[in-house]
Nucleic acid binder design. Structure first.
Lengths: 403, 403
DNA sequence: CCAAGTTACTTCGCGCCTAAAAATAAGCCT
DNA sequence: AGGCTTATTTTTAGGCGCGAAGTAACTTGG
């Protein structure tokens, strides 16, 4: 971490951020509790919360009676201070959701989309954003930001650029395009696996863990690695390409062209392909989701073998992550991950134990994901919230959108 | 990152740290340059450096003539402010080195050790520390800290505990033992691969990279992952067990008991074992180092095949790291890594390219390590230095040892 | 040799900041 | 009602970085 110089203003900003984050994550708290949990003096906690109340970021939320003293007044983040929007760009459609600052869902729009073309996607996003706003009567000016979860990797620079081989996107300047389609609030474009990981960390099975690995098994596989509470991004925001790590050197050819990638063994697509091969059939399923369900519940020896092998590969893949990252928690999510995990979690855990080193394995807890089907959108919506919390909502820093 | 409350004192501490770090890493600088490079105002840079000069942390280092103005006075970290000691606990012996604060080596002691037994190791370390001090006449009180690089993983708690399956250490409270053997300065126990990675980052091929992966190939293989300039440790400091990630599912049995670990293919021991098997010989080499040299320079088809295969496995293993961490730089080190890399770096790079995703691969530069055989000791010695720099050498914080 | 010019560094006053102490608010209990 | 307890606000004190205004230490050009 390259630390940099700080001024007295940064102090205030940081302490605002600390208080705001504590209130956001741990619900209503009194100034007293805030002082205790953050380490700030009661005086400072009081001054700063007073400021935040004046600015409309906080509101009072009742009081707790005491046993013989002045009752403590509870404070919480003002849900009406602003709104955030989360967008899930999937391979079959686009979901746009509007939340208030307490992350209560106010409106949802689903738009199916056959062919994923950047211009069409941008326009659908802009339309969806307009729709959720008019449906709820929320003013565009109250939107703190729009988070967008996309497939593929996102390169962050002055403006986010998306690379997604599977849908044929090569260096698509999506942020610029969405802006040009008419979306005004600040944009936060991020890989969908990472936004889903974020959702799992804040609201799901990752809560409370500082070091966690969120494994997402869908058609393919992905991972979000959280270190010290922060999603790991690497030098150019491309980190976390777990699906294309080699796990069977010289093995099956993956759609990325390389042999032996984990994704050639452990995603829903790979499982179904291996099943087809075992049965010498050659007709790809129309609906992966129900095909996987059928495979998982089949009692045929072939199906059972395919599933058991998949569990082995997945366990080895998870063990690699455990060895490399030494997390306290592994969360297994994604639609296929949840379907497989619902039936085979113990076997997956056992396979992980077989392949991981004893010591890091001993530190980890492996759980199923607990976020719903809109986890990508929820996670995307948390991005502007995180930005607000991290900045301490500093009223002195220039804000692009007028809120 | 869990940010925490800050006081006005933390400000000064942080700015001291920033200045001190800039001076340590980028050699002598004038107050003027410091002000420009850190962003601190000239006034503050001057005040703080004045303080640091008074405390003896900095010294003047000549001046640069100007073209028509007051010449700038150069400042640098005072090499004589204190000393640091680095210890390398290897499988064949213990090396203790003394450095001044400019990391100039003042004295070295090598002590061979056959059987690596914790008590004996602790006593040898204490003896070595005493020896380098008396040899140079440096007072124990001027030693800022002793860094110790050990095989295996180090669990940091109130006192460091070492787990090293390969040498039969299971939860050895090494820090406590070294202390009891009579070493007084603050101790910093860390995994040897990580200390070597640290050395490579500060003084070797990793310089300037914020995100890097230091790959160490010796008898086995290890890695140090650097994220944002900081060595990644995970929840319990066990992160980075690359050697025991599965790369050939169901493959060769590794000494850890699992099948298909990278270490069963890519370290010197594995290469020699595979060569022996190919030749149907059964006599382990007495000296791995010269045996590997012989293997690498052999022109026999069998030797060439073993080496080429190893290059492939190693490349795939590196590609996994590139995909997962998206580093800007990969440094290949370790005695076997350097030996192999000296002859086959291009092939290793090509094998990495074959297995990595195009995009993250496009961001990375793969280089040979540039630190010498005492990299582990040098890296260990940097640990107390890093602690000093990070703390801003705050004279107000209580110090255990009297310096 | 001296004055003017130039650049590096210091000093001082201001506006902020947090902490500690003191004061005040708002309940409970008898 | 009065004492007691606890929460919050106000006051005061000690720090900090910055900008402006000096001051120091040279070079240059006559």
């Amino acid at each position: 971490m390259v630390r940099t110089r700080a001024t007295v203003r940064d102090l205030r900003k940081q302490n605002r951020s600390v208080l705001l984050t504590a209130l956001f994550l741990d619900g209503p708290l009194s100034r007293q509790q805030l002082s205790a949990s953050t380490g700030l003096s009661a005086a400072t906690a009081s001054t700063i919360t007073g400021e935040l109340l004046d600015e409309g970021l906080l509101v009072e939320a009742g009081s707790v009676e005491s046993d013989g003293g002045r009752p403590r007044v509870l404070l919480r983040v003002n849900p009406a201070f602003g709104h955030v929007i989360g967008v899930d760009v999937g391979e079959t459609g686009i979901k746009v959701e509007l939340f208030d600052l307490a992350m209560t869902r106010l409106s949802t729009v689903d738009q199916p989309l056959g062919f994923v073309e950047p211009v069409a996607v941008s326009e659908l996003i802009a339309a969806g954003v307009g729709e959720v706003l008019t449906a709820t009567g929320v003013a565009a000016s109250s939107v703190l930001g729009v988070g967008v979860g996309v497939p593929g990797t996102v390169e962050r620079g002055t403006s986010a650029v998306v690379h997604a081989q599977t849908i044929g996107w090569d260096a698509v300047p999506l942020e610029k395009m969405i802006r040009e389609a008419g979306v005004e609030p600040p944009l936060f474009v991020e890989n969908g696996a990472k936004t889903q990981g974020q959702a799992e960390m804040w609201f799901g099975a990752g809560r409370g863990a500082g070091h966690a690995v969120i494994v997402l098994v869908g058609s393919g596989v992905g991972v979000a690695v959280v270190t010290d509470g922060v999603v790991h991004r690497g030098a150019t925001s491309n980190a976390g390409e777990w699906g294309h790590t080699t796990i069977v050197y010289g093995g099956r050819r993956c759609r990325c062209g390389v042999r032996g990638c984990l994704e050639a063994y452990a995603g829903a697509e790979a499982m179904l392909a291996r099943y087809r091969e075992a049965l010498r059939r050659n007709d790809p399923e129309a609906d992966q989701q129900s095909a996987l369900e059928a495979l998982l519940s089949s009692r045929s020896a072939v199906a059972r073998r395919v599933v058991d092998e998949s569990v082995g590969y997945l366990g080895a893949g998870i063990a690699n992550l455990v060895n490399l990252f030494n997390p306290e928690r592994v969360v297994l999510g994604g639609w296929a991950g949840l379907a497989l995990g619902a039936r085979k979690l113990d076997e997956i855990v056992a396979a992980t134990a077989d392949h991981a080193l004893r010591h890091p394995y001993g530190q980890v807890r492996i759980e199923l994901g607990r976020t719903g089907p809109d986890a990508v959108a929820v996670g995307a919506a948390t991005l502007p919230v995180a930005a607000l919390l991290d900045s301490g909502a500093d009223p002195r820093s220039a804000r692009v959108s007028g809120f």
